[in-house]
Amino acid sequence: MTGYLASLCGGLLIGLSAISYLILTGRIAGISGIVGRLAGGHAVFVNGAFVIGLVIGPFLYAQAFGAWPTVTLVASTPLLVLAGLLVGIGARMGSGCTSGHGVLGLARLSPRSMVAVATFLASGIATVTLLRIIG
């Protein structure tokens, strides 16, 4: 399965995961929240298990489809460090990222999440456009 259909099906599974986590544990499956709480030593078992699951997922995909998902790095390692720092700081400051705000926040019609998604889409597009101009 390739192209937009694969993207749509993958998205459906992501949504199923996020809503299942909410129905089962009562918590929002926001990855930055889960990792941040884990780094802060809160609810280590549950948050740690989610992160281990995240790392296992692509293994299961490789088993099912006979090939690993493609990962093409688009930045040098120093730039990836800067990107990682900004993503980490920004996600915690903004109380969420593409999963918490993007998936569940929009599904809940949360006004905060709508503003967050519009803001990080705008600054992401601005950043890539700027890179295109100066690159």
Partner: peptide
């Protein structure tokens, strides 16, 4: 849920 999430991410590209 974590595994399903990342399986979906993998499938989605």
């Amino acid at each position: 849920c974590g595994a399903l999430f990342a399986f979906g991410l993998s499938l989605s590209g």
